[in-house]
Simulated scan of single mutants.
Amino acid sequence: MNLTINGKKITRDGQEVYLIVEAGVNHGGDINIAKSMIREAAEAGADAIKFQTYKAEKLASKNSPAYWDRTKEKSESQYELFKKYDSFWIEEYKVLADYCKQCQIDFMSTPFDSDSADFLNELMPAFKIASADLTNHPFIRRIARYQKPVILSTGASTLGEIDEAVRVIEDEGNSQISLLHCVLSYPTKDEDAHINMIKHLKNVYPQYVIGYSDHTVADPSMMTLNTAAFLGARIIEKHYTYDKTLEGNDHYHAMDANDIKTFKNNMRVVNNVLGQYYKEPLKSEEQAIKYARRSLVATQDIAKGTIITEEMITWKRPGVGISPKYLDLVIGREAKLNIKEDDILIWEML
């Protein structure tokens, strides 16, 4: 099964990777910073930029404990953290969606409640559901009914829980599903990334596009994301910031515009060299086949009528004469004409 997002076809076994950079709320509630992040992500080559849409009081109780690295993000509760960044709502997201169109990058935002899902449906081509909502079947059902592609992160979930969520979407007649391997730990240690699970998801769900949502600290070469792509991830999502040195929230494990360029350039190189699947000689190899391969060559003058022995011949470049693979067919034959030392043997000589 393939996905189509805003006219872009994402194939399960294709070479192209759809990159979603998650700005989340790293704009800090500043619309101009959010627009700048959109512009820079588009210029760097990202396919989509995704925000997060919520109101703190709808998302978490005031007693919800923190589950992230408190040395990086000091908020004591989820409510405290979310309250810092929940200023954007309908009007702001309309502005950002319009600006994405101007910059030619797909707009997305993960909704965390029914109200935000409803108004975001008018603004974006696909829905991304966070790992934390994988067991929130009423919410998943509501989103599935919009009949748009559903990208579902699977952090901290069992296969049984994933199956249940997939079934909820399918039961609404929606088969445009992508499942993203994800580790729900901020930041994710490299040894906890377990991106081999991408292959497991591909085997278990052969009908769906599989991807990866990354929470590791961005490495300079973007090796983690590129490896995920090599393993079959065709949608990749990673947090995105305009300044990785900023403290708090999702800045400390995010990629920036330069990282986007690195990843995209790596993928261009890979896609250029991957080429076709079927093994056969290529047009670019024609000269090498002719001149770099070997032919049977006389090691001495051979008079007409002489029976050819193994000592009389060797193999040298170019490959325009009798191939060395026919050595046994040449030995024991009679020379039809005089052959000089270093002559390349052809069948007409024998």
Rank of each mutant, 00 (worst) to 15 (best):
K8P: 14
T11C: 07
Q15W: 01
V17W: 08
L19F: 15
I20H: 10
H27Q: 07
A34G: 03
A34C: 05
K35T: 07
K35D: 00
M37K: 07
A41I: 03
A56G: 02
A60R: 02
K62P: 14
W68A: 07
T71I: 08
T71D: 13
S75H: 08
E76K: 13
S77A: 10
Y79A: 06
E80I: 04
K84A: 08
I90S: 11
Y93L: 02
Q102T: 12
C103Y: 01
Q104S: 08
Q104N: 13
M108S: 10
P111H: 05
F112Y: 14
D115N: 15
F119L: 11
L120T: 08
L123T: 06
M124F: 06
A126S: 13
F127W: 12
K128G: 12
I129E: 00
S131H: 10
D133N: 14
L134T: 00
Y146D: 01
Q147D: 07
P149R: 06
T154I: 10
L159W: 08
G160W: 06
E164R: 15
R167H: 13
V168P: 15
V168S: 07
D171A: 12
G173V: 05
S175P: 12
V183Y: 14
P187A: 12
T188I: 11
K189T: 02
D192I: 03
I195R: 07
I195K: 08
M197K: 11
K199G: 13
K202W: 06
N203C: 11
Q207M: 05
G211I: 06
Y212E: 05
S213A: 09
S213E: 02
D214S: 15
M222A: 07
L225T: 02
N226P: 05
T227N: 03
A229D: 06
F230Y: 11
G232V: 00
G232F: 00
I235V: 04
I236H: 10
T241N: 04
Y242D: 10
K244A: 14
D250F: 15
I260A: 01
F263R: 01
V273G: 09
K279T: 07
E285N: 09
E285H: 12
K290M: 14
K290V: 14
Y291Q: 01
V297D: 10
V297T: 05
A298W: 12
K304I: 02
E310S: 15
E311C: 13
M312Q: 11
R317F: 02
R317L: 05
G319L: 13
V320I: 11
V320L: 14
K336I: 04
L337I: 07
N338Y: 10
L350K: 08
